[in-house]
Design a protein around this nucleic acid. Structure first.
Length: 505
RNA sequence: GCAGACGUAGCUCAGUUGGUUAGAGCGUCGGAUUGUGGCUCCGAAGGUCGGUGGUUCGAAUCCACUCGUCUGUACCA
């Protein structure tokens, strides 16, 4: 060997992950639990593709400077720009608009799918992740928003999150807009400052009230010494914003606000309150208390297309990372009313509301809570191979087939059968519960050996020398060929009982 | 995007003020053991010291740039 050829380095693009069997099974389980709730509420599935024409997705048209800022975009051979979707809402609006004449409104629909964001990835933040959305399109009344909140709450509980460990927080963009208008930040010329104020409010749970006060004013210096410029509000303006956002009595309704700034109310302000009152009435008459759905004036929720009520699902238990440190987890889902989205395509008023659950994030949290259904899929029974002639191979495969037909997960060893020890080692590492063994001796006697690998592992702790270990053949029984299925079933059942007892004890 | 910390074997990490052939544990593979997992013992493979360039007689070590990871922050439709 002279020079080594330059090997191609196998590497995953940053921000993307491979999913393990365990993750996939856990995700499937979660999806089916979520789906069951949505179906129960009378929603139907619809799916759209991962790619859309860029202009259908939103305002981010690729330009020559940064064609992929925020989104992954490619140019089709007819030179049209296409992008990978970054959420499921914009594609739904496109779908509804394109099929508006066939779709019966109000349209209640759900879908799960991968979305892509070309942003800086971080722990628990990927450039491809899964969302599970539900939307009601063509429903103008905020009772539809109330229903969304209730469905979100139900979904949290269906996933095994106990009541009190989550909360759906609800606000209304009209209230926030009213506040901004009343402190003189109305009109297009103040777009930029309005955004800054909203972003500051959004940071309430992260930096606390003092942090937000700084951000509303001159700005804030973070731990690394980096300075974030604030919104530059005057003291009076900032305190008014904070008084609304922090007001405990806000949850009791407009009449209870008792703000001496009543003269600062704007039409939007009042309308927003009225809508929240209605939502409050609907959910409380359905028996949803504040421990599940709570009006909270500090919810901001995105900045672009929401026009009315906005809501957010937050977890109330501590989530820890691999190092055991408690991390700021943020919301696991949210949504709101987007009355303008379909209109962009159709010109018709098609009000809509919906929410999105961040499946991947929620799964991380559930893992923490120990509520993640670690799959009870058990590894297959292994039929080992002692003889390699054609006839014997057929017999082994037939055994596997018989086990499968009896509803038992099974496989025949497909590696190099000549090293028998390796077959058991394989079974051990694969966590096979049982190995089936039939060499010529057993064959001649019309018998089969069944080795209980789990029981055997337990016994191995007491055996120290290899000779005894090998010759005693722990946890291994011999049965007649005809009794194979019942014997295997019996062992698997006792394993299942042991597992059950262990998880209960 | 901005600021800081860190990049040595598949993994976790040693590596002295710059000094010969860069080490350990774990894991992997082979053997002891052609038909029995674990334990034990023996052996082997595995490294462009993240990359490029520079300083030097000499660089894993010092410098510059670059890539990647982590933390904070910004953005997140």
């Amino acid at each position: 060997m002279a020079k080594k050829p330059n090997k191609l380095k196998a590497r995953l693009p940053r921000g993307f992950v491979d999913r393990s069997a365990e993750d996939i099974r856990a995700t499937d389980e979660m999806l089916s639990q979520i789906r069951a709730v949505y179906e129960q509420y009378g929603f139907d599935p619809v799916e759209t593709p991962a790619f859309e024409y860029t202009d259908c997705l939103g305002k981010f048209l690729p330009d020559t400077d940064r064609p992929n800022a925020g989104v992954f975009s490619v140019q089709d051979d007819d030179e049209q720009w296409m992008s990978l979707r970054y959420d499921l809402t914009a594609p739904l609006a496109r779908h509804v608009s394109e099929n508006i004449n066939e779709i019966q409104l109000p349209y209640r629909t759900y879908r799960a799918g991968w979305v892509f964001r070309n942003e800086k990835p971080g722990p628990g933040r990927f450039r491809q992740f899964m969302q599970f959305d539900a939307d009601t399109v063509g429903a103008p009344g905020v009772q539809a928003d109330a229903e969304m909140c209730m469905m979100m709450a139900d979904t949290m509980e269906a996933l095994g999150i106990p009541r009190g460990q989550y909360v759906i927080r609800v606000n209304n963009r009209k209230v926030l807009d009213g506040v901004l208008e009343s402190i003189g930040l109305g009109g297009e010329e103040n777009d930029e400052r309005r955004l800054t104020v909203l972003r500051a409010i959004d940071k309430l749970d992260k930096f606390g009230i003092e942090g937000v006060r700084l951000l509303l004013g001159e700005g804030r210096k973070d731990d690394s010494g980096d300075f974030t410029k604030g919104a530059g509000l005057g003291k009076d303006q900032a305190e008014f914003v904070l008084s609304v956002v922090m007001n405990e009595r806000f949850v009791e309704g407009e009449e209870e606000m008792a703000l001496d700034q009543a003269n600062r109310k704007t039409p939007g302000f009042s309308e927003g309150f009225a809508e929240l009152d209605l939502i409050r009435d609907v959910i409380s008459s359905c028996g949803y208390g504040e421990d599940r759905i709570k009006i909270d004036p500090s919810v901001v929720r995105g900045l672009e297309y929401y026009t009315g009520p906005v809501y957010e699902a937050e977890l109330l238990f501590d989530v820890t990372n691999e190092k055991g440190e408690v991390v700021q987890f943020g919301s696991v889902g949210g949504g709101g009313r987007y009355d303008g989205l379909v209109k962009r395509f159709t010109g018709r008023d098609v009000p809509a509301t919906g929410f999105s659950i961040g499946v991947s994030r929620l799964m991380t949290a559930l893992k923490n809570l120990g509520k993640l259904n670690t799959s009870d899929v058990s590894a297959p029974v292994l039929v080992t191979v002692m003889d390699g002639d054609v006839e014997a191979l057929g017999r082994y495969q037939k055994m596997a087939q018989d086990l499968r037909n009896a509803g038992i997960r099974a496989e025949m060893y497909q590696g190099n059968w000549k090293k028998f020890g390796n077959q058991l080692k394989y079974a051990d590492r694969r966590d096979c519960p049982i190995a089936i063994i039939q060499g010529s001796d057993e064959r001649d006697a019309g018998e089969i050996q069944i080795k209980d690998l789990i029981e055997g592992k337990r016994l191995s702790e007491e055996i120290t020398d290899n000779i005894t270990w090998r010759e005693s053949r722990p946890a291994q029984i011999t049965v007649k060929e005809a009794d194979l299925l019942t014997a295997v079933k019996g062992i698997l059942e006792s394993h299942a009982e042991d597992r059950k007892r262990a998880s209960e004890g």
